[in-house]
Design a protein around this nucleic acid. Structure first.
Length: 296
DNA sequence: CTCCAGGGAGCCT
DNA sequence: AGGCTCCATGGA
């Protein structure tokens, strides 16, 4: 096992690992100590978090002046990527053009960064997110890992990676329904099949102009505009992407009513124009802030 | 009991 | 393009 630490003062802007990993933007990290998000939220400040990327286990925790990591590999560059530590939060916040609500959200969770999840895991987890509570989305991904993920021996225990596309493609709809995926089961199976067969993959999407990339993503089964935006924002680094979910729609209704243009594409353009070039960043702060009851 | 959760597909006009 | 309706599951 390799270990290392990234001094926080090397990072442009604040870092808050707990806010980053528990704000509902990624479902691919978990606490290896078994404590859960939400219920033990206040105690997660110095907890370890674990994920698996390309067969390597990666663990991080935040201490006073460092982001500490342990891994099966030299994970320093990987951790910087995964947690958005390369984002210049000073610049990003300076470019944010919201209102009092946006300012309050940024102030409340300073240091929350946009993650860069691996593409396939991000895609599947957000397909699962449809009409589902945050806590249960975590549970569904854990179930997928335990049943279909490659086992890795690590520090005396067995850790399961997120399933490979071929593994989920080989599952049947009924298999996945048994894992309580509900009507999302066939979406997950068919999308996994598309990736596994090469019909549509990350390479066909990453790098394309934002709106084209979003449209392309909706070719996956179970992926509409909202889930596509989540993948663009939380995996591929399209920081302008604003997932229009129930929470941000409510915020638009209350705080930016003129941005509601009646359809997804036009409302998206209007809210992006309102929030600035890193609109997805502000959206994620708003989502976490509103969902945590900060607007009360 | 009803209502709802980080929506999307299928079908209709 | 825009407007239904249905879709599983579990907690409030």
């Amino acid at each position: 096992m390799e270990r290392g630490a990234i001094p926080t003062d090397e990072i442009a802007g604040a870092v808050d690992v707990q806010a980053t990993l528990e704000s509902g933007q990624t479902y691919l990290w978990w606490r290896p100590d078994g404590t859960t998000y939400e219920t033990d939220g206040a105690s997660g400040g110095d907890a370890w978090y674990r994920t698996v990327v390309d067969g390597d286990v990666v663990e991080v925790r935040q201490t006073d002046a460092e982001i500490e990591w342990r891994s099966t590999t030299d994970a320093d560059p990987l951790v910087r990527d995964l947690l958005g530590l390369r984002d210049d939060l000073y610049e990003i916040r300076a470019a944010a053009t919201g209102d009092d609500l946006a300012t309050a959200a940024w102030d409340a969770y300073d240091g929350l960064r946009i993650v860069r999840d691996p593409f396939f895991g991000c895609l599947i987890s957000f397909i699962c997110s449809a009409q589902m509570r945050v806590e249960r989305i975590f549970a569904m991904q854990e179930s997928l890992r335990e049943h279909y993920g490659e086992p890795i021996e690590y520090d005396g225990e067995t850790v399961h990676a997120f399933p490979e596309p071929a593994a989920l493609a080989a599952a049947t709809e009924d298999d996945l329904r048994d894992l309580k995926l509900g009507y999302r089961a066939p979406y997950v199976q068919r999308t996994a099949e598309m990736v596994a067969s090469g019909e549509l993959t990350e390479r066909d999407i990453d790098g394309r102009a934002y709106e084209l990339a979003r449209e392309e993503l909706t070719e996956f089964v179970g992926v509409g505009d909202k889930v596509a935006d989540c993948v663009l924002l939380f995996s591929l680094g399209y920081l302008e992407a604003v997932p229009l979910d129930t929470w941000i729609r409510s915020a638009i209704e209350d705080h930016y009513p003129d941005c509601d243009r009646g359809n997804y594409a036009d409302t998206s353009r209007a809210i992006r124009a309102r929030l600035g070039p890193y609109a997805g960043y502000t959206q994620t702060y708003l989502f976490h802030y509103l969902r945590s009851g900060g607007d009360e």
